[in-house]
Design a protein around this nucleic acid. Sequence first.
DNA 1: CAAAACAGCCAAAGCGCTTTGGAGCACTCT
DNA 2: AGAGTGCTCCAAAGCGCTTTGGCTGTTTTG
Lengths: 340, 340
Amino acid sequence: MNLKQLSHMLSLSQTTVSRALNGYPEVSEETRRRVMDAAKRHGYRPNPSARRLATGKSGMIGYVLPTGNAVDIDPHFVEFLSGLGDYARSHELDLVLSPADADDEETTYRRIVANRQVDAVYISSPRPADRRLALVNTLGIPFIVHGRSEGFGFDYSYLDIDNEGAFHEAARLLLQLGHKRLALINGDDRETFAIHRERGMRRALAASGLTLGERHICSVTMTEENGYRAARRLLEDSEPPTAIACSSLIMALGVVRAVRDLGLTIPGDLSLVAHDDVFPWLRPENFPVPLSTTRSSIRLAGARVAERLAARISGLEEGARGEVWPVDLVVRGSVAGAPA
Amino acid sequence: MNLKQLSHMLSLSQTTVSRALNGYPEVSEETRRRVMDAAKRHGYRPNPSARRLATGKSGMIGYVLPTGNAVDIDPHFVEFLSGLGDYARSHELDLVLSPADADDEETTYRRIVANRQVDAVYISSPRPADRRLALVNTLGIPFIVHGRSEGFGFDYSYLDIDNEGAFHEAARLLLQLGHKRLALINGDDRETFAIHRERGMRRALAASGLTLGERHICSVTMTEENGYRAARRLLEDSEPPTAIACSSLIMALGVVRAVRDLGLTIPGDLSLVAHDDVFPWLRPENFPVPLSTTRSSIRLAGARVAERLAARISGLEEGARGEVWPVDLVVRGSVAGAPA
DNA sequence: CAAAACAGCCAAAGCGCTTTGGAGCACTCT
DNA sequence: AGAGTGCTCCAAAGCGCTTTGGCTGTTTTG
């Protein structure tokens, strides 16, 4: 059932039927009703390929997926995706994943824009002055960044959590408990989120007249093993920290293992706080000692990004709008007063 | 730069240019060369929307993503995706994720087929007599199943690992070490992979004249917490198992925690084997006691599925072809002889 | 040597939609 | 009465590609 057949069936022109269906005003209410009704009855669905060719709109959103032998997709991605799906599902919005060589995403961005494959894209894990942002900005495709970048001559739309505030609060809590030597096991510090977290922590320390020593900060990709290694390095130092803030639950697993291997205990010898993106399969309250966390659901963020992308596509959201979500600090058993 | 302009520039018809570019034989080699050359020089890329409308082919593969408030996307998905991307990247093959209500995926399958959004789909986590398979089979879209289903009147293409063999081997190893009371902490036993694993284990036990008691088998979604709970239940029983096979590394984390909480040790009191899908962020050799595993890279599977889907789309692979990968059994410190 | 086969090219008809530029009609306003 | 104004609707021209059917001239065949 295509437009031609439907319009013939109604003894109307394709123009009128098309307009009736798409809510244009140049058609009488009665006709519209007739058309709508017939369309529903016959299960008419406009052919997206044809519509696409005519309008240039695809009704899909895109994501360029960096891949490569040495590249692992972040497990957070799947949670974000869940959220995106939560929203997209009810709006028949599909997501196109375009795998790209991690060393050359530009080609792929250019391709999907030139091909008009998608109406909007989102970008995740941005770095300061991220080239992808500059690129999509000049390419002129609507986009939203999950996270933030810095150092551009233009504004852009983003959704981010208050990473700085979160780690500021976490550090402040630890300081209040009397800890003097804090350490940070951070994610890849070329990414903005990691920079913000470090900044938040430094700010809290500075307010107490303390600093974060070189030896008390690590930046690694967020795996269990890296968490373990970082923790060992920190704890075997001559001046080991009495409290650690850690950028992910997965790394925290490694920290816990290291603490055990060294015959130490949490929170007796070490207080631990980690950031929790809320994975259904690994929960901080189920750690050997329930883990204090800064918590923000990455899944909700996914849903919100989808919602805003949809709004952007349909013109409901315009201009560069930043949105920063506060982060909860959830205190559990893994923090205690500093050892004497 | 479109076909019209290009053909005008070459003083050829659109027909000839199109044929030259698409490798049709009705064009002289010299002309083809000229056309190819000009196309490259001017960076001509056929408009996919137009091509799509004309041919009905989209050059994309699809995946229906079950979503819902109570539905969590499996973290394995992201690894599979990495593999898919590894292959797809070099072939400009995009993946369309169509989120669907987990309770009604059928509507979405019908939509993407009717809309000709994708040329082929893959289906994951199949169950016996999975309705999705029957559906896509009648809808007539090329597909490949990651995993296996059972009980159809038709054959289909799939890629699966030898789950039965893997758990058979794992169980056999434990039996050889003198264990008599084995337990299985399995994934959702409505899914085929879990059924196969259970079957493999039962077969090994039967060969030794043993059985898998009701109380020694659990089937849960694969989270750390569920692993913990299952392990506690098993170990606090009046006849606790001396060895456990576990369907995922994430659950194994929970098992390890439970063992500790009960003041037991691995492998002294309990031998443990788990299935490892090879996550970059959680590795069995880094468990407190290095974990023995049945190992199969889900990422490689993703790449292979992409490859076969591409072959299927271009007609290189035909008919129903099943492919079953063997699984490695990797023995590490978490298994030992049965306690006396 | 006429007929058939073939190689190489083209015009035009789709694919199914949106959108432009009117046309027809009934009214209202000078 | 004639011009102006909305309101509905339509024919036709795209969007940029593929593919059908056919048209040339050249080569092979019986």
